[in-house]
């Protein structure tokens, strides 16, 4: 037998949802403690996954540990189902777990996301799995894990307030626009992952369970449904979200998060829904924005 055929024969087939059962148990235990201590980052022995660290390995490990054959999975990146990394992760689960996938927010039982929370209100029974690059909200103020762990232990979050206040003093604004820190159930300051702060209010008292996986940093945390999630702010500088002056150019939606799309090299641009499913469903219902003529539809 040649070396090549020996290897072809010898490479093992993978378990359901890729991870071995022992790894799933370890992650499941971490998820349960995360739910029991909302906002606290549970250390876990993150595994190498067949996609790079930083590309959603934490979210993928969480999803792989909870998903079952009856689930319907949606994966979004930047709010869109068709961004390359979302496509890649969705295809991974379709292959290793043979589950149904969807782009419809309402149909999904598990939604894995990077950088957005869907516009459609999530419901009881849905699970939102966030991919998290840097789970530690204090990391950029204090690079040492030994120090930040103490701060969480003592609920000593003065440093974070000082940082936000310095922003105000210097710029007249809190200059944090995404990954805006929240306090969970009055105890732990938590990083919501790099979602725009526009999405922060959706985390508060959500009907859905929110799970967060940081693979490279080896942390899992959670926000149970119906849990207080409050964005940090000051009495004289209350938290506020971004507002867009114009509605979505395709579906005409107001009060949603928009992507800026450059149309030409002369400064022409348009704003469209970042949540592609939300936008498509609105258009299917007949809503139109100012750039969504029939010609437009035909071109797509």
């Amino acid at each position: 037998m040649t070396l090549e055929t020996e290897i072809e024969d010898g490479l093992a087939s993978y378990n359901f949802a890729y991870l071995d059962e022992q790894t799933k148990r370890m992650i499941r235990r971490a998820i349960l403690k995360g739910i029991a201590i909302p906002g606290y980052q549970v250390p876990f022995a993150s595994r190498e996954m067949p996609m790079p660290y930083g590309w959603g390995t934490g979210g993928v490990q969480v999803t792989a540990s909870i998903i079952g054959p009856d689930d319907t999975l949606k994966v979004i990146d930047q709010g869109a189902d068709d961004t390359t990394n979302a496509v890649s992760i969705r295809a991974f689960f379709a292959k290793v777990a043979d589950v149904e996938t969807t782009t419809r927010t309402g149909e999904a039982t598990i939604i894995q996301t990077r950088h957005r929370i869907p516009e459609e209100k999530l419901t009881e029974g849905q699970i939102l799995v966030y991919q998290v690059p840097i789970p530690e909200p204090l990391r950029f103020l204090e690079p040492r894990e030994t120090e930040t762990r103490k701060m969480h232990a003592l609920a000593e979050y003065g440093l974070m307030h000082v940082k936000l206040y310095e922003d105000i003093a210097r710029n007249g604004h809190i200059a944090t626009t995404y990954a805006y820190p929240v306090k969970v159930e009055g105890r732990y300051v938590m990083d919501p992952s790099p979602t725009p702060k526009f999405d922060n209010p959706k985390m508060h008292m959500s009907d859905a369970l929110q799970l967060f996986g940081a693979g490279r940093e080896k942390r899992i945390y959670a926000v149970p449904p119906h849990t207080n999630v409050v964005s940090l702010d000051f009495e004289d500088y209350p938290f506020e979200i971004q507002t867009f002056e114009e509605p979505c150019a395709l579906c005409g939606a107001h009060g949603v998060y928009l992507d800026e799309v450059i149309l030409d090299d002369r400064g022409g641009r348009m704003f469209v829904c970042s949540d592609t499913d939300f936008c498509e469903e609105r258009r299917a219902e007949g809503h139109r924005g100012h750039l969504s003529g029939e010609a437009m539809e035909a071109a797509e």
Binding site: E21, K24, I31, L32, G68, P69, A222, P224, P225
Partner: peptide, 19 residues
């Protein structure tokens, strides 16, 4: 069938812990 049985039991425990 340990793989699927433990997945479904876990989901019940997770749900119960979350609610």
């Amino acid at each position: 069938d340990p793989v699927f049985a433990s997945q479904s039991v876990f989901r019940a425990v997770m749900d119960a812990m979350a609610r």
